[in-house]
Amino acid sequence: MAYEHIKLAVADGVATLTLCREPLNVLNIAMMKEMNQALDTLSPAGLKVLLIQAEGKAFSAGVDVGEHLGDQVHDMIEVFHGIFRRMEKLGVVTVASVQGAALGGGCELAAYCDLVVASAKAKFGQPEILVGVFPPVAALVFPRQMGYKKALELIVTGDVIGAEEAKAIGLVNQVVAPEELAEATQTLVGKLVGLSGLVLSLTKKAVVRGLMDEKEQGLQLIEKIYLDELMPTADAEEGLRAFLDKRKPQWTEK
Rank of each mutant, 00 (worst) to 15 (best):
149 K>M: 15
125 G>W: 01
143 P>F: 01
133 V>S: 10
148 Y>Q: 13
145 Q>F: 02
156 V>F: 10
128 E>A: 13
108 E>C: 04
103 L>K: 07
121 K>V: 06
149 K>F: 12
134 F>D: 10
120 A>I: 06
124 F>K: 01
113 C>L: 03
104 G>R: 00
142 F>D: 06
146 M>D: 15
125 G>N: 03
152 L>C: 12
141 V>P: 02
105 G>M: 02
145 Q>Y: 08
140 L>Y: 01
120 A>M: 13
123 K>A: 11
147 G>L: 02
144 R>P: 15
136 P>R: 03
135 P>F: 00
104 G>A: 14
116 V>L: 04
124 F>L: 13
132 G>F: 08
124 F>M: 06
155 I>C: 06
142 F>P: 01
104 G>T: 08
125 G>V: 04
145 Q>A: 15
141 V>H: 02
109 L>T: 09
141 V>Q: 05
103 L>F: 03
131 V>W: 08
131 V>K: 04
136 P>G: 05
117 V>I: 15
146 M>G: 09
115 L>F: 10
127 P>A: 08
135 P>G: 14
124 F>R: 00
156 V>A: 07
113 C>F: 09
116 V>I: 15
120 A>T: 15
141 V>T: 09
153 E>Y: 12
120 A>G: 14
113 C>R: 03
105 G>K: 02
143 P>L: 01
114 D>S: 10
134 F>T: 05
155 I>Q: 09
102 A>L: 09
131 V>N: 06
122 A>L: 05
126 Q>Y: 13
144 R>G: 09
110 A>L: 07
140 L>R: 02
132 G>I: 02
117 V>A: 12
112 Y>R: 13
112 Y>A: 12
104 G>D: 14
131 V>T: 03
111 A>I: 08
